Simulated assay, not measured.
Amino acid sequence: MTTTDSDITTEVGSWPGVTVGPHRFAGTEFSLDGREFGHLHAGWQVDVPFTRRLRDALVAEGAAAEHHLYPESGWVTYYLDSEAGSAGAVRLLRLSYLARVAALRRRADPPGELEGVDVAAELARLDPSDAVRTAFGLDPVEG
């Protein structure tokens, strides 16, 4: 694993409730409550699932590319080509994680370790575009 892989895996693996394991098509998978929210392919690429609306906003603003194999899906691909690439990958994985946390909270019994995750505050720290805020169901002005 490269330093970038290790940095990404260490960061993402430290988030509440995250499970890190091997991905079925090689690489490292990140899951929350048994559902994948992204995976890393050995130092060169990160694939991340979103709702189609959120994926469209991220692709339109250049934060990610359409998935390299399934461009019509909600998945995006992000290529790691520098240290800035590592930060961009972690940001996308965090957005996917927060979307999953929000979805779990809509259930009757979200995992207890997620109680301390403030989705709105975390999104504000990521400073998303109005289109991304809207795709998350937030008012673009209020956040």
Rank of each mutant, 00 (worst) to 15 (best):
T2D: 00
S6F: 13
D7A: 12
E11Y: 08
V12T: 09
V12P: 03
V12C: 00
G13E: 07
W15M: 14
G17Y: 10
G17A: 04
T19Q: 13
G21T: 08
P22K: 11
R24K: 13
A26P: 03
A26K: 13
T28L: 08
E29S: 14
F30Y: 11
S31C: 14
S31M: 14
R35V: 14
G38Q: 06
H39C: 05
A42F: 09
Q45T: 09
V48Q: 08
P49I: 12
T51K: 04
A60E: 08
E61N: 02
G62M: 05
A65N: 15
A65K: 15
H68S: 06
H68D: 09
H68R: 12
L69A: 10
Y70W: 12
T77S: 15
Y79R: 14
D81F: 00
E83F: 05
S86H: 01
G88H: 02
A89W: 02
A89C: 02
L93S: 03
L93R: 04
L93Y: 01
R94I: 00
L95C: 08
L95D: 00
S96N: 05
S96Y: 07
Y97L: 06
A99H: 07
A99C: 05
R100N: 07
V101S: 05
V101R: 02
A102T: 09
A103H: 08
A108G: 14
D109Y: 07
D109K: 11
P110M: 02
P111T: 07
E113L: 06
L114S: 10
E115K: 06
V117P: 08
V119K: 11
A120E: 13
A121D: 13
A121Y: 04
E122G: 15
L123E: 00
R125M: 12
R125F: 07
L126H: 04
L126K: 11
P128H: 04
D130R: 12
A131R: 07
R133I: 07
R133E: 08
A135V: 11
A135Q: 07
F136A: 12
G137K: 10
D139E: 11
P140E: 01
V141L: 15
V141I: 14
E142D: 14
G143C: 12
